[in-house]
Simulated scan of single mutants.
Amino acid sequence: MIRVLLADDEAMVRAGVAAILATDSGIEVVAEAGDGREAIERARETRPDVALLDIRMPQLDGLEAAAEIRRLVPETAIIMLTTFGEDDYIAKALACGAGGFLLKAGDPRELLAGVRAVADGAAFLSPKVARRVIEQLSGQQLSRGARAREQVAALTDREREVLGLVGSGLSNADIAARLHVVEGTVKAYVSTIFTRLGVRNRVQAAIVAYEAGLVSG
């Protein structure tokens, strides 16, 4: 069972998201919060697998709440709920350790897929959000691409292969099955890759993989 904390200052939004999550028997909303401070308290109390946080909330916004939850309950994965017009928050959310980005007005199936993916250790970006991230990066693509290629050059062939699969959104279990190794081996590779690249989570690693040309499209 995937245990979820849902935080949004709009009760109607919380009700709608909770109703969608309730359609999956493998997902349970264990706590709700109406602001960032309350989200942190509920996370400490319930230690959920995934925290779904609205970016804009009173008292403490979702970005600050995400950073604090990651500090206090590091095993909790973070998904940010966003709307168009909040593109400037994406880079900041990455730095806070968010593993997923979903649009409030997106396909309900993306919400379920995102929660499952992030709970399984993978990264998940709504396709529309992913396009916005790529657009934001495009203006600096040449310099960033050169830097990313320099970063991955320090990796072994196997580590680059694993990084490419992380960039494609595969979980550790999926990568293990693809490479015919045990999941523990993949976890060790991923940990080493994070250290060598100087990244903190799978989303940041996926961006390096994309910029370095390890992921097509």
Rank of each mutant, 00 (worst) to 15 (best):
L72C: 05
C96F: 09
V186F: 03
V4R: 02
A123H: 15
L112S: 06
A15N: 12
Q140G: 15
M80P: 00
E38R: 00
V50Y: 10
A123T: 14
P74F: 11
R149G: 09
V186R: 02
Y89H: 12
V30Q: 06
G164E: 09
A22Q: 10
M80N: 03
L179C: 07
L102R: 14
I207C: 02
A209F: 04
E86V: 06
L197N: 11
E161Q: 12
R144D: 14
L94I: 09
G97R: 02
A77N: 10
L137S: 05
A95Y: 06
R196V: 03
A31N: 09
R42Y: 05
M80A: 12
C96Q: 12
A43D: 03
E32C: 04
S25L: 07
L102Q: 10
I79K: 00
G85K: 00
Q151T: 14
L21G: 01
R144N: 10
G184T: 08
D157P: 01
A130W: 10
A43C: 00
A51T: 00
L214F: 05
A98Y: 07
M57F: 09
Y210G: 09
T82L: 07
A123F: 14
V208N: 08
K104A: 15
V162F: 03
D157V: 12
L6P: 00
G184Q: 06
L63W: 08
P58W: 04
R109P: 03
L179G: 13
L103W: 03
G34D: 10
A95R: 06
R116T: 04
R109C: 03
R71G: 08
P108S: 09
N201L: 03
E41S: 08
Q204C: 03
D61G: 06
K104G: 15
S216Q: 14
R200S: 14
R132I: 08
A119F: 07
R149F: 06
Q141S: 08
G139D: 02
V162Y: 01
S138W: 15
E75V: 05
T156S: 15
G97L: 03
A173H: 08
G106W: 05
F84C: 05
A15V: 11
I79H: 05
V181F: 07
G34C: 04
A77G: 11
E150H: 09
G16Y: 13
V133N: 02
A43I: 00
Q204V: 02
R37W: 12
A7Q: 08
D87C: 09
A43V: 01
D61N: 13
Y189S: 00
V181H: 02
R178I: 04
P74Q: 12
A177G: 10
